[in-house]
């Protein structure tokens, strides 16, 4: 579904900042992959390349067998701060995509209703983003991406700005949604627990230059829930990744 071969991204021309350096990386169809790393390690850059928001400097990146030249509805992006259009209601935010794509109303409206129901916002269709809590806003962000039936969901620290409790309930929601829809997900995070809980595979990244240093398959059984956060298998993965990250941070 997504494949990077020897991809580099340099900001500011020759001699600039190497945000990504010779990255090889793949995401299989239907796979949930978490990119885990400290801020500034290039994990958001990697996601932005897939999204088509930025262009790579060297190497080749394919999405669904094609090179990416611009953003599009086959790659639904969920932003860190939701980035909803604040003058549109929840409903209008969710149907913005189908509308500008010129889809027929009777084609997308039932789907939009269903997805709003899945994310638990059917009662808030007429609310404006400012009237919602951070968690609710991010539910809308997920809904507007899902309504386009994307081939992949690209999530850039979507729960990073939420308080711990809301974050847990959003992780639970995402698990339920994903277990139902089985969309390919590329999930950027700096939270180890979140990465293990959600992903089939965790890719650990390091900064300067941005590289993927370790890929760890998480073979915890599905379906998962936030209760898994405390079981021993989970703790085992966490210990492994922490060792991995410490090693990556302090190579000496």
């Amino acid at each position: 579904m997504i494949s990077f071969s020897k991809v580099s991204k340099v900001y500011g021309g020759a001699g600039g900042v190497r945000a990504l350096d010779q990255v090889d990386f793949t995401v299989a169809d239907g796979e949930f992959v978490a990119l885990l790393g400290p801020s500034g390690c290039g994990k958001s850059t990697l996601l932005n390349l897939v999204a088509g928001f930025e262009k790579l400097t060297e190497g080749e990146m394919l999405f669904d067998g094609q090179t990416v030249s611009r953003p599009g509805p086959d790659r639904g992006v969920v932003f860190q701060e939701a980035s909803l259009l604040p003058w549109l209601t929840v409903w209008d935010n969710v149907v913005f995509g189908p509308k500008v794509q010129g889809l027929l109303r009777n084609e997308y409206e039932p789907r939009a209703h269903e997805i709003l129901k899945i994310v638990g916002l059917e009662a808030f269709q007429k609310a404006l983003p400012v009237q919602l809590s951070g968690g609710m806003r991010q539910r809308v962000g997920i809904a507007r991406a899902l309504v386009m039936q994307p081939k992949a969901l690209l999530m850039d620290e979507p729960f990073g700005a939420l308080d711990a409790q809301t974050r847990l309930s959003m992780q639970q929601l995402l698990l339920e949604v994903w277990q139902r829809l089985k969309t390919t997900v590329l999930f950027v995070t700096h939270d180890i627990d979140e990465a293990i809980l959600l992903a089939d595979r965790v890719c650990v990244m390091t900064a300067r230059p941005g590289r993927i240093t370790k890929e760890i398959p998480i073979d915890l059984r599905r379906p998962r829930s936030i209760d898994d956060l405390t079981n021993s298998e989970f703790t085992h993965f966490k210990a492994r990744i922490m060792t991995e990250m410490r090693g990556a941070h302090d190579p000496h």
Binding site: R70, G72, S83, G97, V100, R144
Partner: peptide, 15 residues
């Protein structure tokens, strides 16, 4: 204009 609003619109297929 917030860059992410434009990115979001492009992502949703807006010309």
């Amino acid at each position: 204009v917030d860059k992410n609003w434009i990115r979001a619109a492009l992502m949703m297929g807006a010309g």
